Simulated scan of single mutants.
Amino acid sequence: MTHIFAHRGAAGTHPENTMAAFEEALKAGADGIELDVQLTKDGEPVVIHDETVDRTTDGSGWVRDMTYRELRKLNAAAKWNGRYGHCPIPHLEEVLAWLAPTPLMVNIELKNSLVAYERLEQKAIAVVHRYGLENRTIFSSFNHNSMRLCRQLAPEIETALLYMEPLYDPWTYVRAMKAEGVHPYYRTVTAAFVMDAQRRGVAVRPFTVNKPKTVKTMFAYKVDAIFTDDPRQAKEWKEKTP
Rank of each mutant, 00 (worst) to 15 (best):
T190S: 05
A197E: 09
I89Q: 09
P212Y: 09
A191H: 15
P101A: 01
K123A: 03
H3I: 02
R130I: 00
K240E: 14
E109P: 00
L71A: 03
L162G: 00
E158C: 10
P242E: 02
S113D: 10
R175S: 01
P242G: 10
A191L: 15
K73T: 14
L26F: 15
F5I: 03
K79C: 03
E24I: 08
I138E: 01
S113Q: 11
T137D: 09
E34G: 00
R136A: 02
I33L: 07
Q122H: 13
T57N: 10
A28M: 04
W80T: 05
R151Q: 12
K178P: 02
T102V: 06
R64F: 05
L99H: 06
T228M: 06
L162V: 05
M66I: 01
V46I: 15
R55N: 11
G9I: 04
D230C: 15
N112E: 01
L120S: 03
G9K: 07
K111H: 04
M66G: 08
P212N: 13
A176H: 13
R64K: 12
T67M: 00
L149D: 10
A116R: 10
V204Q: 13
A20I: 03
Q152S: 09
D229Y: 06
G61Y: 04
E156W: 07
G61A: 07
L114T: 11
E156P: 11
R151C: 00
L92N: 11
G29V: 07
E70M: 13
R130V: 01
G32A: 11
A220M: 08
T241A: 13
T56H: 05
A100C: 06
W80D: 03
T67Q: 01
R205S: 14
D36I: 01
T67I: 03
P101R: 05
Y117M: 00
K240L: 12
G61R: 01
F207G: 07
M19C: 08
S140C: 03
S146Y: 05
V47D: 01
L35M: 15
Y117V: 05
W237N: 09
F227K: 00
E239I: 13
R64Y: 03
E180V: 09
K240T: 06
T13D: 12
A76C: 00
E44S: 05
I89S: 01
S113P: 10
I108A: 04
A11I: 02
V37P: 14
F193L: 14
